[in-house]
Write a protein that binds this DNA or RNA. Structure first.
Lengths: 131, 131
DNA sequence: AAAAAATACTACTATCAGTTGTTAGACTTT
DNA sequence: AAAGTCTAACAACTGATAGTAGTATTTTTT
């Protein structure tokens, strides 16, 4: 899936330079058959290899990951969970609850209060675990 | 060389979210020992894996290729784009206090309790702001 | 201080990245 | 039109290593 897409991109860029599989292979230092496998996506490409290939093709490695999707600007990004929204392409490191928690926590500017919240939370957990 | 740098980045970002190796491993679907190898750089990371890891960490894959060990910027963090949503003025990576908070919060497996904590937190903040 | 969690290290195995060999089409050249 | 050249697809084999499980050690929590 991923490797296939990247393979296609390799092929595309290679051809745009008018290079044969053999020529690219030589630059990278592997067999042209292996290049074939990369392009077909039948072999997993390691990050190192992709970097070598990038170099050999004279493009930045990030070229292989772009899909023409615009990268949202900082000001566009909101840390908010939207129930029923489109499934998020990427996995969210923090779930809804955790995000809510963080946002609330960040609202308290007072250091003592924050510390108090943590202490209290510890207490709650202790209580629960005892039961 | 390359893998080592990327490994360090994985570790750095993982920690910035307050995740353990096991937690990350679970999200990616591999053993935590393998995550260790990635972080140590003793195993070559395939592009696919790195993409999975990127997702699990909620950052764009390109974050791993940029030079310098900078902390991920907002633009690296893959969150949902919300037209007209609250712009996130100051999303710093989680600081130590916040990581502590998160870890504590994650310890409470009971849903009701978690909800209670949030409600209470809301109450506290309301109180403070009134004063 | 002891229990638990997180990380580090070791050893093994199954997988697969990479090689070689072969075949076939598409162009030239003679 | 046959013989040489260039390119790419495919198969079979093998050595390297990605990934796992198990154990040890360090760090954190209680």
């Amino acid at each position: 899936m991923t490797d296939k897409k990247i393979g296609q991109k390799i092929k595309q860029i290679r051809k745009s330079w008018g290079l044969s599989q053999s020529e690219l292979a030589e630059r990278v230092g592997i067999s042209f058959q292996q290049i074939q496998k990369y392009e077909k996506g039948s072999t997993r490409i390691s990050v190192m290899r992709l970097q070598q290939i990038s170099k050999a093709l004279g493009v930045n490695i990030s070229a292989f990951f772009e899909e023409g999707q615009r990268i949202p600007k900082v000001s566009d990004i909101a840390l908010r969970y939207i129930p029923g929204g489109d499934p998020l392409e990427t996995f969210q490191p923090l779930n809804k609850e955790e995000i809510t928690l963080l946002k609330l926590f960040r609202k308290t500017k007072n250091k003592k209060v924050r510390e108090g919240i943590l202490m209290q939370l510890r207490g709650v957990i202790e209580l629960i675990n005892q039961k």
